[in-house]
Design a protein around this nucleic acid. Structure first.
Lengths: 211, 211
DNA sequence: ACCGAACCGTAACGTACGGTACGGCGACGT
DNA sequence: ACGTCGCCGTACCGTACGTTACGGTTCGGT
């Protein structure tokens, strides 16, 4: 039951907070948002509720910190911007799409999005900023570099990204959120999405629908 | 306060149940899922809690019936299958996309999806069946007829639909669910989505990425 | 006029949860 | 050695909600 250990590793209280946040994530995934009570967190984390409130203020603070903590773990490495030929572009785009698909399909992401949607006023903005918009800001430089290299053609990088987002995600996220557990081949889906995206925006082929 | 009227219209108890369900929807949209208590529903619907429990069993039964009730209201008309030329296909697809975008952007749909996601085990399947899968089954015949008419080319109608779904919806639903209120031009988005879909699957142009 | 069914309004009950208070205990500095 | 600090475990409090029960009222049928 004790998942933390009484500070035996000598990591001080540094890792304790994060251990608590991991307990929140684990409970969220295993039991769902309804079972996420302060008592359950305290018991699972082998800490007292008093400590929980001292560290995180209240329940909402605990949830907020958990969302940020998970977001900080998901950040994928930035992609190399050198030697951007057609192959490198394709590889980077597929990496983005496959990683994104893997993340939004994971139980942790689904559970976190569920609770954020349930409290859209307070948590929705955080998840949105660290999810949808964060990946947009990380992908746009790649798209702009690709355009500068004459590999793709578009007017608005935001619109191009939204199309990429749609082609990659399709119905995956909403189905997962609504409880549909179906198999996903992230690599194959990423390849298909990139094929379709380049068919629409690629400059080497017929530049259809660039506006 | 009384939104129903004491059966004065002589509609018997036929419309009373539906009136209660509309109250649930209104409360969901106005106050959010957290404020949806049985007491609030009873007060707003000018009925007693005892009646609520007699009619719907328990809180979950009330929610389930509400989801079904809303789903029955959203059904759009089937599209004409005659004279399927390129123009008619485009028009039908745009109609589908625009209607779908309007629905998923509506406050009612967002509120209902939020609560369904929060209770994915019990309500998620219902929303999924009446939303994502229902529109899929309604769109596929159109796609198959279009393929038979030589207007589009694809191997798997399900995959073609999922692409259409992604091109139309993109990030709209997840952003709305997470509380992002941004303007949407359903007609323009539908036009763009259909343009892109036909660029990928249209048989008149280069049939790229059909597999 | 009378009966019974359905329903309204409200009170009541049990439970569960967020948040707080308290006693005890091990660790650490002096 | 000893006081202090932080934390654990638990008990506790107030509240809110789901659910049930009950008295009073309306209304259709006979």
């Amino acid at each position: 039951m004790n998942e933390i250990g009484l500070d035996s590793a000598g990591e001080g209280t540094a890792g304790r907070r994060e251990a608590v946040l991991d307990v929140v994530l684990a409970l969220l995934v295993e039991k769902g948002a309804a079972a996420l009570t302060m008592t359950a967190v305290a018991r699972r984390a082998s800490c007292s509720k008093e400590t929980l409130y001292k560290w995180f203020g209240d329940r909402e603070g605990l949830l907020t910190e958990t969302v940020r903590w998970q977001a900080s773990k998901v950040r994928a490495g930035a992609y190399d911007r050198q030697h951007l030929d057609a192959g490198a572009l394709r590889e980077s785009l597929e990496g983005f799409a496959a990683n994104w698909l893997t993340v939004i399909s994971s139980e942790t992401s689904v559970a976190l999005n569920r609770i954020a949607i349930g409290q859209a006023e307070t948590l929705g903005g955080i998840v949105l900023a660290n999810g949808r918009f964060a990946i947009g800001e990380r992908l746009k430089p790649l798209l702009l570099d690709a355009r500068a290299a004459g590999l793709v053609a578009f007017d608005d990088a935001e619109e191009a990204f939204r199309t990429f987002f749609g082609l990659a995600g399709r119905d995956v996220q909403i189905r997962r959120l609504l409880g549909d557990r179906f198999a996903i081949d992230a690599a194959a889906d990423a390849r298909r999405a990139v094929d379709q995206f380049l068919a629409l925006y690629g400059a080497t082929k017929t530049p259809a629908m660039a506006g």
